Simulated assay, not measured.
Amino acid sequence: MKPTLVTQTALFIFSLLLYCAACPAQTAQPAPNQTAQKVYVGAYVMNLYEINPDAHSFYADFYLWFRWKGDIDPTGIEIVNRIEDWGANDEPFSDSVTVLKDGYNYNGLRMEGRFFHPFEMERFPLDRHVLDIQIENADYPLDSLVYLPDTANLIRMKPTLRLPGWDIEGCSLTAKTHMYATDFGNTDLGQEPYSNIVLEIPIARPVTYFLLKLMLPLIIVLLSSIGALVIFPSRSYVDARISLPIGGLLTAVFLQQSYSDALPDVGYMVLMDKVYLLAYAVIGAVVMEIILSANYLKRNKDTNLHALRRIEWYMALFLILGFLAGNLLLVFL
Score class of each variant (00 low, 15 high):
Thr303Tyr: 08
Tyr140Thr: 12
Leu148His: 08
Thr208Arg: 09
Thr98Tyr: 09
Val221Met: 01
Tyr280Arg: 00
Asn300Asp: 14
Glu50Thr: 11
Thr182Met: 09
Leu333Gly: 13
Leu330Ser: 03
Arg110Ser: 11
Gly170Met: 08
Glu289Pro: 06
Ala279Pro: 02
Lys298Gly: 12
Leu319Gln: 01
Tyr209Asp: 04
Glu84Gly: 10
Phe93Gly: 08
Asn47Ala: 15
Asp261Arg: 04
Gly76Leu: 08
Gly190Val: 08
Pro159Ser: 11
Thr98Met: 05
Leu145His: 00
Glu122Leu: 07
Thr177Tyr: 05
Ala55Lys: 15
Asn295Pro: 09
Arg299Ser: 11
Pro233Asp: 00
Leu278Arg: 01
Lys2Arg: 13
Gly76Pro: 04
Ala181Phe: 13
Ser172Pro: 01
Leu189Ser: 07
Lys2Ile: 11
Gly76Val: 02
Ala43Thr: 14
Tyr63Arg: 13
Val45Asn: 07
Asn89Ala: 15
Thr174Met: 07
Asn33Asp: 12
Gly247Thr: 05
Asp85Arg: 12
Glu122Asp: 15
Thr98Gly: 02
Ala138Thr: 03
Lys38Leu: 12
Gly284Arg: 01
Thr160Lys: 14
Thr151Arg: 07
Phe62Cys: 03
Ile155Asp: 11
Ser258Gln: 07
Pro74His: 04
Val282Ala: 06
Trp86Gln: 14
Pro264Cys: 04
Ser144Arg: 11
Ile168Cys: 08
Ser236Ile: 09
Val198His: 11
Phe210Pro: 03
Tyr296Trp: 09
Ala240Met: 10
Met121Leu: 09
Ala316Ser: 08
Phe115Met: 02
Tyr19Asn: 04
Asp188Val: 13
Glu136Asn: 13
Gly284Tyr: 01
Val41Glu: 08
Ser57Phe: 09
Asp302Thr: 13
Ile135Met: 06
Asp90Tyr: 14
Tyr280Met: 06
Arg310Trp: 15
Leu142Gln: 05
Ala228Cys: 01
Pro159Glu: 07
Asn33Trp: 03
Asn304Ala: 06
Gln37Asn: 01
Phe318Glu: 10
Asn47Ser: 10
Phe58Trp: 04
Leu319Cys: 00
Arg110Leu: 05
Val198Asp: 05
Asp85Glu: 15
Leu333Thr: 07
Gly248Glu: 00
Met269Leu: 14
Ala10Trp: 05
Arg82Asn: 11
Leu189Arg: 14
Val230Glu: 12
Phe116Pro: 01
Val275Arg: 01
Met121Pro: 13
Tyr147Thr: 04
Leu330Asp: 00
Ser236Pro: 00
Arg156Asn: 10
Asn47Arg: 15
Thr151Ile: 11
Gly108Thr: 04
Ala285Arg: 08
Leu100Gln: 09
Gly227Val: 02
Met179Ile: 15
Leu333Ser: 13
Glu91Asp: 12
Glu136Val: 05
Gln34Lys: 14
His306Ile: 08
Ala60Glu: 07
Leu271Lys: 04
Thr7Arg: 12
Glu84Ile: 05
Gly103Met: 03
Val99Tyr: 07
Phe14Arg: 08
Trp166Gln: 10
Leu145Pro: 04
Arg241Tyr: 03
Tyr268Ala: 03
Leu161Ala: 05
Val99Gln: 15
Asn33Ile: 02
Val230Met: 08
Pro217Met: 03
Leu278Pro: 00
Asp54Ala: 12
Asp261Thr: 05
Ile311Asp: 07
Ala281Tyr: 02
Phe66Asn: 06
Arg128Glu: 13
Tyr209Gln: 06
Ser225Met: 00
Gln191Asn: 14
Ile283Phe: 02
Val97Asn: 03
Thr251Met: 06
Glu112Asp: 04
Tyr49Cys: 15
Val221Pro: 00
